[in-house]
Nucleic acid binder design. Structure first.
Lengths: 179, 179
DNA sequence: AGTATATATGCAAAAAAATGCATTAGTCAA
DNA sequence: TTGACTAATGCATTTTTTTGCATATATACT
């Protein structure tokens, strides 16, 4: 149930915001290591409030629905810090494409090549987005504060991940293309 | 529900076997891109049989429980091939360590460094196992059959994945260590 | 005028996964 | 002879995730 912690971390690092804003944050950057739907996020925020880890304030708006502004509480920060200190295991990997690759000989070579090229493009696109964030937000790595270093490392993980996928796709395409 | 397809692929590529054997196959190699518990695997096999995608034969044994030997059926192969041809999206990533990294400034630097070193070791160990499999099963890459190429690419993905994690851990450790 | 998109949040049901517990019988070591 | 491990399979419960559907107003496009 690290979704809770992902939300807490976002409220801490990027500040208080609404559930709607959190959905956007997840879509934009956090999704490179944690994905969640708006249904999950809204529900989890209500649960977090019950626990006392976040507090909310209703912001009345005209013309559009009211919003709930969520902030992390001192208790929430403590809880997050405590969780960070408990060792965690690598994530479970469940990657459709690798199952497809394992049994890829069942389908025509061109079909697999197409799928691999499609995937390469997806990862190239994500990579470009992340590299742009890196370029804009971390122009000089030498002069980062402690807090910034951690943000930087998160982005770096995303960049490596996408670049690694691209590299594997290239390798696979090259191997399968040689007839 | 690609667990079903992972099971079908394993039965196809490595041959008929029992649920127990599949659990071992998952633990050993498949887990580098699909993880599943024995409870999931046994249940899914029963479901697959209802669908007609696998067939089972009870093997009576003395001294130990009887086993059910599962084989993929022609229908199962067709189904698998059809699934392979439908495009898939990248897996959802949910990585605790990255959430921890994002908010890592909440805890002492040494604690984060310890966790990063622990993680590096986990990935180094997995990497060693996969590289050994690569060395033993794919000594000369130039002379692979079509089917073998796909197996090889699966292993390559695992190797890249683990190596990539190690590289990021190194980068993170280096950045945080410089005081 | 109609369609799509953004803002902002939610309920309900179904599917998938994780967790805990259970059985039977052999081997192997301390 | 107690404890641990391997072989082999399963049930039940809870948690988590996914999917489908719903609502309200505003703005911008076509």
């Amino acid at each position: 149930m690290a979704l809770a912690h992902a939300l807490l971390a976002s409220l801490l690092v990027d500040g208080a915001c609404s559930g709607y804003d959190l959905v956007k944050r997840f879509d934009e950057s956090i999704s490179c290591y944690w994905m969640a739907s708006h249904q999950q996020i809204y529900k989890e925020l209500r649960d977090l409030e019950k626990q006392g880890w976040v507090s909310s304030e209703t912001i009345a708006q005209t013309g559009r629905p009211n919003k709930n502004l969520y902030s992390i509480t001192a208790l929430g920060q403590e809880h997050l810090a405590h969780w960070i200190l408990t060792p965690s295991v690598p994530t479970v990997i469940r990657e459709d494409l690798m199952i497809k690759t394992l049994a890829g000989f069942l389908v025509p070579n061109l079909a697999m090549l197409d799928e691999l090229k499609r995937r390469r493009q997806i990862h190239l696109d994500k990579l470009a987005v992340l590299k742009e964030i890196e370029r804009q937000e971390f122009p000089q790595v030498a002069a980062l504060s402690r807090e910034q270093k951690f943000c930087y490392l998160s982005i770096r993980r995303g960049i490596r991940y996408e670049a690694d996928w691209v590299a594997w796709c290239e390798e696979a395409i090259a191997l399968l293309a040689e007839e």
